[in-house]
């Protein structure tokens, strides 16, 4: 349920309808104290990644900087030059202030800690 809430896309604004954006593959993993989102961004270097938070919407824009020298002649091509864009609506149960992002081997790991209020709490029995 919560996963759906997180992945739910807000109504598309006109800007989102512009052509040329590619929605990357992503995977959500619920862990005890946090939610981790893995986003596949092949060819994207750390510097080409742009993450912004608009209220509770996390917006990712990344250009694949798989820059090849101009001297490379294409013989056969299956990949495409892409600008990745992903918009994730963060549920109230997540702490938007404490998002961590880590980029490794073309995969972005977004760690979203759960808000203190929803974390399971042990209650001491007197």
């Amino acid at each position: 349920m919560k996963m759906n809430e997180l992945a739910k896309q807000p109504p598309k604004s006109e800007k989102d309808n512009s052509q040329g954006y590619y929605r990357p593959h992503y995977q959500i993993e619920e862990q005890e104290g946090e939610t981790v989102v893995w986003v596949e961004l092949p060819g994207v270097a750390k510097d080409d990644l742009n993450l912004t938070l608009e209220k509770r919407d996390l917006i990712l824009v990344a250009g694949a900087s798989n820059h090849r020298p101009e001297s490379w002649k294409v013989l056969h091509r299956e990949s495409a030059d892409r600008t990745y864009r992903l918009r994730l609506h963060l549920g109230n149960y997540l702490d938007c202030e404490a998002i961590e992002a880590d980029m490794q081997n073309g995969v972005l790991a977004l760690t979203l800690p759960k808000a203190e209020a929803v974390k399971p709490r042990k209650i001491k029995i007197k």
């Binding site: 798989n66 002649k73 990949s79």
Partner: peptide, 16 residues
Amino acid sequence: DLYADESNYYIQVEIP
């Protein structure tokens, strides 16, 4: 993808 320049062939595979 396959590319070439004067000296080399280049093979690129997207495997994040």
